[in-house]
Write a protein that binds this DNA or RNA. Structure first.
Length: 498
RNA sequence: GACCUGUUAGCUCAGCUGGUAGAGCACUUGACUUUUAAUCAAGGGGCCGCGGGUUCGAAUCCCGCACGGGUCACCA
């Protein structure tokens, strides 16, 4: 059925009969392609440097047969480069013509020259097949555009769509930058459990899994928060973690069930200190990646220059909707929500406030600190020093998207217990996203936690902004997709074995 | 979950108001020693996503299902 594939399998058998191993063990790569280009790109057209011995390797991306000579293009992680081969190398010329195909890996030894048309090339004095492919790559100028195939077979996407290849490199550079930044600020990178018997630190539905040894269900972490604070209680004064969180919720252009979050906690700091840290960290990343703090995201200009605007949640909602989230009654809020057709699934004050904010958040463009959220929606944040109905909390909003969340951490164990009790009651009333009672965490706080500032940044969303990606799946190499049926391909394999 | 939309060759796509499937690239064979979307000549390749219905006849119309994409809802 899949003729092209069977044909290639046959070619491999023929190669083996000829004594050529289609899957040899190693090759001495002495130069990367970009190195070669940088060194020899200044050659005159037609010039060659025979005594510059090159040895490099890559995947064959194009072949142009030309009678007794062949041009082919190889690609490695740094660049693409044309290679030239002719009959002067003897019988291996015919082998190349017959058996080396687009998609295969080859090692090439030779010297650099510039073709008459000005293309830097390697004159191959010898080559070696390093790995044969049996599947055909997508065609060369439309590439792979089918979103489903791009997400399911990212390895093909990054071979042929080099902007995707670069985007993931950028992602991992950003993560490295964050580590370097946090380390230089004196933070210690630590780890916390992913499997937890009680999970918390965020308003979210957790995944449930099963631990056989104890025969108990466990949750997968929804945030790093509660364990990082245990570190602070334990004497670590500045810690951070970059790791996956898991939330059993919807999938959308900005939500993947597993995503990466950086959280950090700093003893003796408050949310004002964390705002300063956040500004410095994010502008550092944006500047490094884009070379400027004025970037274009999906056609809209976003200015990351400091200082970022600070708006109080209460004022912002009042100005836009005329509702005071502290003074006005539940009825008034419900009334306003009704006129916008935005009633929440759980009829409770905290949810009303969240909903009201959702109605206005899209009006925020440049990075903005949304500060001082009501206690109702901030069960882990410390009460505001000037108004106990509020908390010392901020979120970073960019183009209506939440990028970070932080607070002066609640370290009063009595207040924390009360807040958990409220959450626990909500949970019992059917709010699956309300916080679970975490007795061990309360016990930890009772041993005393210094005043602490905490911050969480969604890494995927930061990468989206930094790389102008419209969908979170574009910045997650292997995003969540429904499982595929492989039965058809399985049958093929059986046929081949006969 | 709701609405809109898509699924045809390995890839990217045509295929009109129903008449038995097409192009480019890729692949195979041949020609060509500086090409680069190489060129020229010839050729092979399809459960038209799956299942049902209407019809003399369905890739095409209708219904259901599966899997995507977009918008909304949900979601710190």
């Amino acid at each position: 059925m899949d003729n092209l594939r069977l044909q290639k399998i046959k070619e491999i058998e023929e190669l083996i009969k000829k004594g050529i191993n289609p899957y040899p063990y190693r090759f001495d790569v002495e130069q990367k392609l970009l190195e070669i280009r940088e060194k020899f790109d200044s050659l005159e057209n037609g010039a060659k440097v025979e005594d510059a011995k090159l040895s490099t390797a890559g995947r064959v991306m194009a072949i142009r047969y030309h009678g007794k000579s062949i041009f082919f293009v190889i690609q490695d992680s740094t660049d693409k480069l044309q290679c030239y081969l002719n009959v002067s190398i003897g019988e291996k010329f015919e082998i190349f013509k017959e058996y080396v195909k687009v998609g295969d890996f080859v090692g090439v030894k030779g010297f650099p020259f510039k073709s008459h048309t000005g293309e830097l090339s390697i004159f191959a004095e010898s080559y070696e097949i390093l790995s044969k492919a049996i599947r055909i790559l997508p065609e060369k100028w439309h590439g792979l555009t089918d979103k489903e195939k791009i997400y399911r077979q990212r390895y093909v996407d990054t071979i042929v769509n080099r902007d995707a290849f670069e985007r993931f490199k950028t992602r991992y550079h950003i993560i490295r930058m964050i580590r370097e930044f946090m380390n230089s600020e004196g933070f210690l990178e630590v780890e916390t459990p992913i499997l937890q018997s009680v999970t918390g630190g965020a308003t979210a539905k957790p995944f449930i899994t099963h631990l056989n040894v104890f025969d108990i269900d466990m949750y997968m972490k929804i945030a790093h928060e509660l364990y990082l604070k245990r570190y602070v209680v334990g004497g670590y004064e500045a810690v951070y973690e970059i790791n996956k969180c898991f939330r059993n919720e919807g999938v959308s252009y900005k939500h993947n069930p597993e995503f990466t979050m950086m959280e950090c906690y700093k003893a003796y700091a408050d949310y004002n200190d964390m705002m300063d840290l956040t500004e410095r960290l994010i502008t550092h990343v944006i500047k490094q990646v884009n070379g400027t703090l004025k970037i274009t995201y999906q056609g809209r200009e976003v200015d990351f220059n400091r200082p970022w605007k600070r708006v109080k949640m209460r004022d912002y909602i009042k100005n836009h909707l005329g509702v005071d989230i502290l003074e006005d009654s539940d009825d008034k809020m419900v009334e306003t929500l009704k006129t916008h057709d935005a009633l929440p699934p759980v009829m409770e004050r905290g949810h009303y406030i969240e909903k009201l904010w959702d109605l206005v958040e899209d009006t925020v463009v440049n990075p903005t600190f949304l500060v001082d959220h009501p206690v109702d929606i901030s069960p882990l944040a410390k009460r505001h020093r000037e108004d106990s109905r509020l908390t010392e909390r901020f979120e970073v909003i960019i183009l209506g998207n939440e990028l970070a969340n932080a607070f002066s951490e609640l370290n009063d164990p009595i207040d924390q217990r009360k807040r958990f009790e409220v959450q626990s009651a909500l949970r019992q009333a059917g709010d699956e996203e309300a916080q679970m009672m975490d007795y061990d965490f309360l016990r930890a706080l009772e041993y005393g936690m210094p005043p602490t500032g905490g911050l969480g940044i969604g890494i995927d969303r930061l990468v989206m902004f930094a790389t102008d990606a419209s969908n979170i799946k574009e910045v997650i190499a292997f995003p969540l997709v429904r499982p595929e049926e492989f039965s058809v391909e399985g049958l093929e394999m059986e046929e081949e074995e006969k």
